[in-house]
Write a protein that binds this DNA or RNA. Structure first.
Lengths: 124, 124
DNA sequence: CAATGTGTATTACAGTTGTAATCCAACTGA
DNA sequence: TCAGTTGGATTACAACTGTAATACACATTG
């Protein structure tokens, strides 16, 4: 099973941009990021570098410009982060978390219906 | 709404011990921890100190010995950590996460039944 | 009372993370 | 050709984390 590198909070924002569309040049990423954050361009370049170092992304070079693209899928990362979250908070057990969430969160009538349909799909 | 301090991975293990039973002396905590981790006693004391500093726990003094107890409940912390997790991974939306989980995770027939019952309880 | 043990307080130290600034090489326009 | 601009590489730096070790103060024992 492929292990995905650990992606930090700040890095995650950059990944989202690349998952959304790629390849993108550093400047494209910077533009996209500045619609959602206050980060300076230099900061975003740092994050791109770190992500490339840890092989979460890579790039192709076109003249002097790099175009970045993800090496790991959003699904993989979500799964991996979820696993460690679950492990930390709930000792790894999935159902207790669900139970807790369902207790705590407010869901619309449609949400509930949708979830129930999914459960129906799961049961044989 | 009360804000809980951020509790790190390592600190979380200590909190679990105190949530499980408190107050406990440092040595009690250390004993309990050593059943589950390899951490040195000094390490655990450091974690207790840091937790006390950030007011996640406090202590009473009995002669020269401290007895520690949580200042924040497990529920609060779970909720708070879950919020930031959700925000980071799913942009804060709860249902997409559930949908994803239900797709990914394998649940027993009883689990599914239990969840369905909970959903029934939620819908008016 | 002196040495030893024990519990707490202080200090250590490297790796990670957030958040950039500076340096350098190449391109571009005058 | 020279200076400014621009993209990338290197460096910065403090806070937070994991993981302790050392120092200190009080208590106990011989």
């Amino acid at each position: 099973m492929k292990t995905v590198p650990h992606i930090t909070d700040a890095e995650w924002e950059v990944m989202k941009v690349l998952w959304n569309e790629s390849p993108r040049t550093a400047n494209d990423v910077i533009d996209a990021m500045q619609e959602r954050t206050e980060w300076k361009p230099k900061t975003i370049r740092t994050l791109l570098n770190r992500l490339a170092q840890k092989q979460a992304i890579s790039f192709t070079q076109e003249n002097r410009v790099y175009a970045y693209f993800p090496l790991v899928s959003e699904g993989e990362c979500v799964k991996s982060e979820t696993q460690s979250f679950l492990k930390r908070i709930y000792g790894g057990a999935f159902k207790p978390m669900l139970v807790n969430f369902l207790k705590e969160e407010q869901l619309s009538e449609e949400d509930i219906k949708e979830l129930r349909d999914m459960l129906d799909g799961k049961s044989k």
